[in-house]
């Protein structure tokens, strides 16, 4: 668009293999957790047929627990990358902690509201997205804590932790379930905005989460001077 007078784009490596693995593990485990979780909360079908075993609830729970361990591992990777990842993956790059980032936050809001035409040429997350992802990570922690408490109610330290945070199993159950809707909400908005950004921005962010590379305007990259290109 406008500012890219030269019309050239350069391919910038942004996301490490670890981050991409985190993203897809998190995404797939989230989908599994949401679907099995909704079943566990309210199994829509009752198998009244007794002539064959179905074991449906036990199977759903097994999938739920398996996915939960992938979810936890993915989150551990994300925490590591927040602290020790590349410059675009670190927490200080995607949260409004500097003047540059606060500008990016407002830029993204204005851009999404169709009030600015210019897409910000920025290798990492835009700060609106980055801040929201931090929030998602925080809610994920809450899901993990409540989930562990529900899954291992009699295990010493988990029980103490759960009792201190939630007070009772029923409260943990309630929070665990209510937060499921947050993940549905987030997934919907996230997928929509990715497609939207793919249309209105030039970066190719959807292919970026597979390839780890973004297409940035050559002029902006040259102006910045610190961005390593391929």
């Amino acid at each position: 668009m406008g500012a890219n007078a030269s019309g050239y784009y350069v391919r910038v490596p942004v996301w490490s293999v670890a981050l991409r693995l985190y993203h897809w593990t998190f995404a797939l485990s989230c989908i599994t957790l949401i679907l099995t979780g909704l079943y566990i909360n309210y199994p829509p079908i009752s198998t009244w047929a007794e002539f064959m075993p179905s074991f449906s609830m036990a199977t759903m729970r097994t999938w739920h627990f398996a996915a939960a361990f992938f979810f936890m591992s993915a989150l551990a990777v994300r925490f590591y990358l927040y602290l020790f990842g590349n410059r675009y993956e670190k927490i200080q790059d995607c949260t409004p902690v500097s003047v540059r980032n606060i500008k990016s936050l407002f830029h993204a809001i204005m851009f999404y509201l169709y009030m600015l035409k210019e897409h910000e040429a920025r290798p990492g997350h835009n700060v609106l997205a980055g801040t929201f992802y931090c929030f998602v990570v925080f809610i994920s922690l809450l899901m993990i804590v409540s989930g562990l408490y529900l899954m291992y109610p009699e295990t010493g330290w988990i029980q103490s932790m759960g009792n201190a945070i939630f007070g009772s199993q029923q409260m943990a159950r309630f929070i665990h379930y209510a937060m499921t809707w947050f993940f549905i909400f987030f997934t919907m908005i996230h997928v929509y905005l990715c497609i939207w950004n793919d249309i209105f921005g030039s970066e190719g962010i959807i292919s970026g989460i597979f390839s780890g590379r973004k297409m940035l305007p050559a002029d902006a990259v040259a102006k910045d001077g610190t961005i390593e290109t391929e």
Binding site: P43, T47, E50
Partner: peptide
């Protein structure tokens, strides 16, 4: 097994199925 009482007095209830869907708080 996924066999639940859907409402009190239904066939599942008569067969002694799980009361989870009619609000049993046993899991908590």
């Amino acid at each position: 097994e996924g066999r639940f009482v859907e409402s009190f007095g239904d066939e599942g209830h008569k067969a002694g199925y799980c009361l989870y869907k009619v609000g049993c708080k046993g899991p908590a």
